[in-house]
Computed example of a mutant assay.
Amino acid sequence: MALTAFLLKRLSYAAVLVLAVLVLNFLLIRLAPGDPIETLAGQMGGMTEEIRAELQRAYGLDKPLPAQLGIYLSRAISGDLGHSYFFNLPVTQLILERVPATLLLVMTALFLAVLAGTTLGVMASRRPNGLLSQIITVVSVVGYSAPVFWTGMLLIILFASIIPILPVSGMRAAVVRQGVFADMLDVAHHLVLPSLSLAIVYLAQYGRLTRASMLDVLGADYIRTARAKGLTENTVYFRHALRNALLPVITIVGLQFGNMLAGAIVVETVFNWPGLGRLAFDSVLRRDYPTLLGLLFFSSLLVIVVNQLTDMCYRLADPRIRT
Rank of each mutant, 00 (worst) to 15 (best):
M1K: 10
L3F: 14
L3H: 11
A5G: 12
F6Y: 15
L8E: 02
A15L: 15
V16E: 03
L19D: 01
V23L: 15
P33L: 07
D35P: 05
I37N: 03
T39C: 00
G42N: 11
G42W: 02
G42V: 02
M44D: 02
M44E: 14
G45Y: 05
G46E: 03
M47N: 10
E49G: 04
E49I: 08
E50G: 13
R52P: 00
A53G: 02
E54M: 12
E54C: 04
Q56R: 15
R57C: 00
K63M: 07
K63N: 08
P64M: 04
L69M: 03
L69Y: 01
A76F: 04
A76Q: 10
D80W: 01
G82Y: 06
H83T: 04
H83L: 04
V99K: 06
T102L: 08
L104G: 05
L105R: 00
L112S: 05
A116W: 08
G117W: 09
T118D: 06
V122I: 15
P128W: 07
G130L: 06
L131K: 10
L131A: 10
L132R: 13
I136D: 05
S140C: 05
V141S: 10
G143N: 11
Y144D: 00
V148Y: 01
F149H: 05
T151A: 15
T151C: 09
L154V: 14
L154N: 12
L154K: 04
I156A: 00
I156K: 03
I157G: 01
L158R: 00
S161N: 12
I162Q: 13
V168F: 09
A173D: 15
Q178V: 11
V180A: 05
L191T: 07
L191V: 12
V192A: 09
V192R: 08
L193V: 02
L196F: 11
S197G: 14
L198K: 04
A199V: 01
G207Q: 07
G207E: 11
S213A: 15
L215G: 05
I223T: 07
I223H: 10
R224F: 09
T225I: 13
T225W: 12
A226Q: 03
R227I: 00
K229E: 02
V236A: 06
Y237L: 15
H240M: 03
H240W: 08
A245P: 00
V249P: 02
I252E: 10
F257L: 05
N259R: 10
N259M: 06
G263A: 04
V266M: 11
V267G: 01
T269H: 06
T269N: 07
V270L: 06
F271W: 13
G277M: 10
F281H: 11
S283F: 10
R286W: 02
Y289G: 02
L295S: 03
L296Q: 14
F297C: 14
S300M: 05
L302S: 12
I304M: 09
N307H: 12
L309A: 15
R315W: 06
R315T: 14
R315V: 15
L316S: 09
D318I: 02
P319A: 04
R322E: 14
